[in-house]
């Protein structure tokens, strides 16, 4: 079993792992020639299923596996992965390799970086970083020179700048578990229904801060059911979205209007567009709402997907399910297709 690849879109990769780790500590990664599947399935709560094209995060990739269709199934801890990716941000280059160290399988990340580019402002294009002439205007550590001089040390500007361009090799070994195909066979993605309502969500930071406030309010107002407050989320096919919390003492809701209900592509549908549930909901007018209850804390974790800075389409099946599609833009390549994460939100009927 072999896997070796250079990393690209490292910033996106780090954001992905950050979003994953709000739901679960571990991720199941299935690598194949064409796709990388990231699957997050906590014991309870919402799940994330994603199929990313291999070239979204990887390039110059080699996979060799004895398993059917050349796949490798790995389970890895998100925190070390995230930490390693943060190390790699702003680096000159980074690559990932499946290997064994002292008999234990690890995913070994090799990062080439320089002192300068490992700074927090070091998101310069990788190739440009080591070549960039040091200048007190764009150098985040421009104050270093002043400090050196103030301290009377005999560093010249030239010496300091030369030293900054030295490359360093950082190796981050991420613990992993290689999974047998039989082990993963029992984990299957929940089925998807044709939604009653599909709507583009408002900016997630806004939605999250209001939802969180409702959840905290319910937690603070006490009562037996306050351990995990349920928020009611509703949407219609006329651009409306509502978030509502009802406790013994309060009943509050926030409403958004003029949101976008995107057009469906008839070619992708299993039923003719005029028979699609969403068409019926649209025809019934703006008072026809598809509603679902979610756990306040779990919903808050789901909305952390906002850090991915992509469009989010919510698909409601009234009283049955809520699925979010999170579109992840390419930061490094604006022209490429977005990748999609599918959030199966843990939902409750009324």
């Amino acid at each position: 079993m072999r896997f070796h690849s250079d990393l690209k879109n490292i910033r996106t990769f780090a954001k992905l792992t950050a979003a994953f780790s709000t739901l679960e500590k571990l991720v199941w990664l299935r690598l194949s020639d064409e796709t990388a599947h990231f699957t997050v399935v906590p014991d309870t709560g919402s799940q994330i299923w994603s199929t990313l094209p291999m070239d979204f995060l990887f390039e110059n990739c080699t996979i060799q596996s004895a398993e059917p269709s050349n796949t490798i199934n790995l389970e890895l801890s998100l925190q070390p992965l995230h930490r390693a990716l943060k190390s790699a941000q702003g680096s000159i280059s980074a690559s990932l390799r499946l290997t064994k160290k002292k008999g234990v399988p690890v995913l070994s990340m090799t990062i080439t970086t320089s002192t300068k580019s490992s700074s927090k402002f070091g998101n310069a294009p990788p190739a440009a970083a080591p070549l960039k002439p040091p200048s007190s205007y764009d150098d985040p550590f421009g104050d270093v020179d002043e400090d050196f001089q103030a301290a009377g040390a005999e560093h010249t500007h030239l010496e300091t700048s030369l030293r900054r361009e030295h490359e360093k090799i950082i190796t981050q070994d991420i613990p992993i578990r290689v999974l047998h195909p039989d082990t993963v066979a029992s984990t299957v993605q929940p089925s998807l229904q044709e939604p009653d309502v599909h709507i583009q969500l408002p900016p997630l930071l806004q939605l999250k801060s209001i939802s969180d406030r409702f959840t905290k309010l319910a937690l603070a107002s006490g009562g037996s059911s306050s351990k995990s407050p349920r928020l009611e989320i509703s949407a219609n096919m006329h651009g409306g979205l509502r978030v509502r919390i009802a406790t013994e003492t309060a009943d509050i809701s926030s409403a958004w209007t003029d949101l976008d209900n995107p057009q469906l592509d008839p070619a992708q549908l299993r039923v003719p567009i005029e028979e699609h549930p969403s068409t019926k909901f649209r025809d019934r007018g703006p008072d026809s709402w598809a509603s679902i209850y979610v756990d306040g804390k779990d919903w808050s974790r789901v909305l952390s997907a906002g850090r991915l800075e992509g469009r989010v389409i919510a698909c409601f099946c009234h009283n049955q399910s809520l699925v979010l599609y999170v579109y992840i833009p390419h930061y490094d390549d604006g022209a490429a297709d977005d990748a999609v994460l599918t959030y199966h939100v843990q939902a409750y009927s009324a």
Partner: peptide, 17 residues
């Protein structure tokens, strides 16, 4: 519990640094 192991990090620095 192998997945609970912390990140093992190694950095190679040139003596010129």
């Amino acid at each position: 519990a192998v997945l609970k192991k912390p990140l093992h990090t190694s950095i190679s620095v040139e003596t010129d640094e």
